[in-house]
């Protein structure tokens, strides 16, 4: 059913720390590996070894440069982006076949590939570019929040998190229930002022981004080193005089 549930029991999602992400793309690779060899159609590549390789990914890392308006130093921010499992997911309601849905139990937004006709309308409806139509399979692919890991009792406990979270060497990705104010992720969001992407689109994303912490700024702190000497002394003073005499 492509109507949205009025309320979900949990709001499982990711919290991504833009202060910590180093832009290594490990999450991109582990996501591709897990999701190409497990649930659903594999994430295909076209011209993988040719001059114009391209393929389907569920998670991609952009890098932005932010320049403060007051002329301070520009800052590089690595920016991983995948489905935000929105509460008001426009991708779900536009779907004509019923393939796209949001789960009542945990709020995960999924595509049932047996129903998808590959019209692409859901990808048009998503503001975040979180859905990609697989060019070989012809069905819509998106982040499943590794639904086949997080509830998988065949995996050791520490592996029951999304592949991207498990692999991140910087610890920049956190997974949990954002509907529970006492969960670790909710506390993190409260403490660090987690934000929504494009709130003006009205999608109410579950995933939150933790903004980079303020950097020291030379202009603002005035912490410039004092010169140790204005006038030369000793040998340098002699050299100074000698050179002036020439």
């Amino acid at each position: 059913m492509t109507t949205l549930p009025a309320k979900t029991e949990k709001k499982l999602g990711l919290v991504i720390d833009l202060d910590t992400c180093v832009g290594c793309h490990a999450c991109v690779i582990n996501c591709k590996e897990w999701n190409t060899s497990n649930y659903g159609a594999p994430l295909s590549d076209v011209d993988a070894y040719g001059p114009e390789p391209e393929g389907t990914f569920l998670n991609r890392v952009h890098a932005f440069e932010v320049t403060p308006e007051d002329g301070g130093c520009a800052q590089t921010v690595h920016f991983p982006k995948s489905c935000l499992h929105c509460e008001d997911a426009p991708c779900v309601t536009v779907c004509p076949t019923g393939a796209s849905y949001k789960r009542t139990e945990d709020g995960i937004v999924l595509v049932n590939e047996n129903d998808c006709m590959g019209c692409g309308l859901c990808a048009w409806a998503c503001p975040y570019g979180a859905r990609e139509l697989d060019q070989l399979a012809g069905v819509m692919k998106k982040c499943t929040l590794c639904i086949d890991r997080i509830y998988n009792e065949n995996l050791p406990e520490e592996d029951r998190v999304p592949a991207c979270v498990r692999t991140c060497p910087a610890g920049a990705r956190h997974f949990g229930d954002l509907g529970d104010p006492d969960s670790e992720v909710s506390k993190l969001v409260a403490e660090r002022g987690g934000i929504d992407l494009m709130p003006e689109q009205g999608t109410r994303p579950v995933n939150k981004y933790l903004p980079p912490r303020p950097r020291d700024s030379a202009a603002a702190s005035g912490a410039r080193l004092e010169p140790v000497a204005e006038e030369p002394k000793g040998f340098l003073a002699w050299l100074d005089k000698a050179l002036e005499a020439i």
Partner: peptide
Amino acid sequence: AESATGLGRIGKVRLLEPPHSGRNYLMKEM
């Protein structure tokens, strides 16, 4: 770009590096 990344509170945002060197479905379609 500022609202899309939520980085507007720090300053002006520009793309430094795209996430991939080739094209993808999103770029072709949208």
